[in-house]
Nucleic acid binder design. Structure first.
Lengths: 151, 151
DNA sequence: CTGCGACTTGGAATTATTCCAATTATCACT
DNA sequence: AGTGATAATTGGAATAATTCCAAGTCGCAG
């Protein structure tokens, strides 16, 4: 997918929600797509500033929230720390490597999702499931999945 | 399990970690066991104060952290909001009811856990898994599982 | 009974995020 | 092109949750 295709998809999605495509939203989305490493709002702010030096942190928060609303980005919360943002839209879990602090995306087979929904007692209707593994990932696993994280 | 048994278990666990059993720790643990509704630190603070009026919020945070370290309590983080605390030690997921704000514990069959571990690529070794459902729970599900939450 | 380390306390500091009021940009329509 | 109306951005102040820190207290080993 090319950059302009992304941008197209972005403005389309925004338009669908009755929202405008702005330079700020575009750059923020591009930044997320370019380095898919679950950055915090602060980190996004730092990266975006090289391209839009006058952008404000408030705008970064606003735009990220907007992207989340449009289902273009997922907000991810690990224990305590700040919210992180992830442009991977396929159903996936997160593996949080406790020794490196990095976060890896783990694809979720649909069978697992249906299996999980089965454990819900009657009357519970889940709209979304969030799964987080915590542990260690070996050196060699480094390049096996979409990944990366906060150094 | 009686109150004194709980207290016994508590001081035992603490001792195992080379820590002392203190009134503050005991009351906080008791409070969590009595109303198992995933309270925040603030809520715990409020409840504990009726018994120990001079306790400080810092101590509540310290003690909760201690209990988490000793594996007597689990810290639970839903998106953004403050950390909540849960004395249910059996493997379980959380169901977050978006309309009431309540949190329900959902028991996890061991088969599901092994299934989940199977989706991890080689080299990933998970020490823990956290699962959160988000959605709606119907009226009738109210009393089917251990539950409750922030009103 | 005394000293040492563990524990608690209050308040200050930090961090992440949200709020708000004032601009600025963009669109729809003339 | 001009003009409102509406949406978006901005900076700074405000809030919320948590952590930090220095001082005081407690309890047990010697």
């Amino acid at each position: 997918m090319t950059a302009s295709e992304n941008s197209e998809a972005l403005s389309q999605r925004l338009a669908d929600s009755g929202l405008r495509s702005t330079p700020q939203r575009e750059v923020i989305y591009t930044v997320l797509m370019k380095k898919r490493d679950h950055p915090t709002a602060d980190e996004v702010y730092a990266r975006v500033k090289t391209e839009l030096p006058t952008i404000s942190l408030a705008t970064v928060y606003n735009c990220l929230e907007t992207l989340v609303q449009c289902d273009l980005v997922r907000a991810v919360n690990f224990e305590r720390g700040p919210t992180r943002y992830c442009p991977n839209l396929r159903p996936h879990a997160h593996f949080h490597d406790e020794s490196t602090g990095r976060t890896h995306d783990i694809d979720l087979p649909p069978t697992v999702l249906t299996e999980l929904n089965r454990i819900l007692p009657q009357g519970f209707d889940a709209k979304s499931i969030e799964i987080t593994f915590r542990g260690q990932a070996s050196e060699s696993s480094e390049h096996r999945v979409a990944s990366s994280g906060h150094p």
